[in-house]
Amino acid sequence: MKNLKHRGKDKYMNPYVAGVLLGFVIMAAFFFSGEGLGGSGAFKDIVKTTVVSVAPDYAAHSHYFKSATELDHSPLKTWLAFEVLGILIGGILSGAYARRLNLRIEHSPKITSRKRIGFAILGGALFGMGSQLGRGCTSGAGLSGMAVMSVSGFLVVAAIFGTGYLLAWFFRKLWI
């Protein structure tokens, strides 16, 4: 009985309620800031900031980094970098509220922690490359792109999930 007060707090939100709320957050981003939500953009800003400060000569001659060397402020002072910092804070707040804060490696019992970490790094690296080529990730190119009914948004979502389904069988031992 002692947990009665907290009963329900650790349950996940209804997905349709979460979806509608998230839809309003997307609308707020467009209405107040003229921006879509994103994820990968902040990582790009970190890479740009690092390379521009460590190797400014290289950056000035690189097609990828050139624009970042011409800014009058840090490449990290972007809307997306602050938004992603917000995701981190929002995640901590929700996790604290729902009592889900704890250090762990989540993985299927069929694989080792080491294997999970290896595949997580691989998956992250692929997302890093793919998001640069595709001009954004699931959030930025996909979700925000679909919110403004852009062809690009639907195309990237179909490619991401289509590929995932095609390859799911080969990677099933990682998950089930």
């Binding site: 998956g123 690296a125 793919g130 991401i160 289509g162 590929t163």
Partner: peptide, 13 residues
Amino acid sequence: GGVIMGVGFVTGG
């Protein structure tokens, strides 16, 4: 880019 990200999703979760 989407295909590369799709492989990333199913391997990285």
